[in-house]
Amino acid sequence: MRVSVPGIPQAILSAAGTSQTVSPATAIERIASFLSPGNATVITGAGVSVDSGIRAYRGKDGTYMNPNYKWVDSAIFYHELIDETERGYAFRQRYWLRSYLGYPPVRDALPNTTHYALAALQYTGVVTRLITQNVDGLHHKALRDLWSSAKLEERILELHGTLHKVHCKHGHTIDRPTFQDWLSAANPQWKEYADDLERTGRQPRTNPDGDVVLEGVQYSSFMVPDCPSCMLEGRRNSVHKPEVIFFGESIRSEVRERSFDDVEKGDRLFIVGTTLATYSAFRLLKHALRLKKPVLMLNVGPTRADGTPGLDKIDLPTSAVLREVVRALVGIQAVEDQTIKRMLSSGIMKPPAEDDDDRLPRAAG
C-alpha cells in the first residue's frame, strides 16, 4: 500500500534563506495593521508549541528534525494501526509503548507566550476562529479558565485531532488519562519504568504527536488491553487509536467542511508557526486566496507556501512579536483589562535545548 508523506518541495528547501527578513518592530506594525480590522481566522502549527518544550517536526531549514522520522523512528500508518491480524497487534504494541512513555510530557506541557497572545486576540474578538494542526490541546489550556468547553469547541478547531482522547474501532471513547491507567495496569513493569523516567527526569525525546524515540526495546513485551466496553458486548478488541489523524487516514468530512467554513467566515487569514507541509492545511491557504482574502504568514524557515502569489510572509519566531502585536491592537486595555493584562504576562518560555537534535539516525528497536 502506497501512502504519501507530507513534505515541502525540494525547490523551496533549496532556496531556504532567501526570504526577506524584517525587524521585530516592523513585523509588529505589519501584523497589527493586518489584524486591526478584526474577524481574522488563524491557522497554527507545531512551531507555536516549541516554546512549551514540544519539538517541531522540522528545523529552521525546513527539513525533518530526523530524516528517518517517517520511516524508522516513529510513524505508524493508519492501515497498520487498525490491522486486526497478529502483525497489526505488533504495530499497536510498538505505537502504544512509545505513546505511553511520550504522553506525560505532552499532558503536562503548559501554554507559552504565543498561546496566550493568541488567546488574548481570541478573547478580544480580533481573532474569531482558530484552526490548529497541533494535537497537544495547549490553545484550549490558555482559555479554559475563561471559556466553557462548548465555546472552546466552537472557536477552536483541532484539524488533526487530539492526543487527549482515545477510541476503539467500535467507537467507544475514553479520555486519555484513563487509557494511560489501563496501559499501566496491563504493563506493571513499564509503569515502573515510566515512573522512574518522571522521577529522574530522563524523559526520552518526545515528538509533537506524543511519540518517543526508543533504542533496543522489545515491543513484544508490551500488552495492549482489550476494550472493556467491547467485552461487555461479547467481543474482544484491542484496536485502540488516539483521536489523531495518522498518515494514510482521511480527515472526517465534518472537520474538513468546518475548516473551509471557518476560512470563509473570516475576513482575513493569519497563519502562524507552520510549514503547511500537510495538504489539509495548505488547501485552506489556497481556499482563502481563491476567495481573494488577505493572507499573512508568520513562521521561521521555508514553508510549502513560499512563493505563492498573494501570500505575505514574515520570517520571525512568534514569541518575538505576538505579545507586542496584542498591545498595539488593544492599547490601554493591555493595562486596564485585568484578563488581558494577565494573558500578556502569562506563558512559559521553555524551548527544547538547541542540542536536542534528532537529525542523526537512531535504532528503533
Rank of each mutant, 00 (worst) to 15 (best):
V3I: 15
V5P: 00
G7Y: 06
Q10T: 11
Q10H: 10
Q20E: 15
T21Q: 13
T21S: 14
P24R: 09
I28T: 06
P37D: 12
A40E: 09
T41R: 05
T44N: 03
V48D: 03
G53L: 09
A56R: 02
G62P: 12
T63S: 10
P67E: 08
N68S: 15
S74F: 06
S74L: 09
I76S: 09
E80A: 10
T85I: 10
R87L: 14
R87W: 10
R87M: 09
A90N: 13
A90Q: 15
Y100R: 06
L101A: 10
P104S: 10
P105L: 07
R107Q: 13
R107W: 07
A109L: 06
A109M: 04
L110W: 02
T114D: 02
Y123R: 02
Y123N: 00
V126G: 04
T128G: 12
R129K: 12
L130T: 08
T132I: 01
T132E: 02
H139P: 01
A142S: 11
A142V: 04
L143I: 01
E153R: 13
I156Q: 01
H164D: 09
H164R: 15
H170T: 11
W182P: 06
N187P: 11
K191S: 14
Y193H: 15
E198A: 13
P204T: 11
R205T: 13
D209R: 05
D209G: 06
E215W: 02
P225H: 11
S229M: 13
E233I: 05
S238N: 15
S238T: 12
K241L: 06
E243W: 08
E254K: 00
E254A: 01
R258C: 03
F260Q: 05
F260G: 00
V263G: 03
K265C: 05
G266F: 03
D267S: 15
V272K: 02
V272S: 07
G273Q: 00
T275G: 06
Y279M: 07
R283Y: 05
R283W: 06
K293P: 06
P294H: 00
V300M: 01
G301D: 11
G310H: 07
G310F: 01
I314M: 12
T318L: 11
R323A: 03
E324K: 12
V326M: 09
R327T: 09
Q333K: 13
V335P: 00
D337G: 01
T339F: 04
L344E: 02
S345R: 08
M349L: 14
M349A: 02
A353S: 12
E354I: 13
E354N: 07
R359Q: 10
P361L: 07
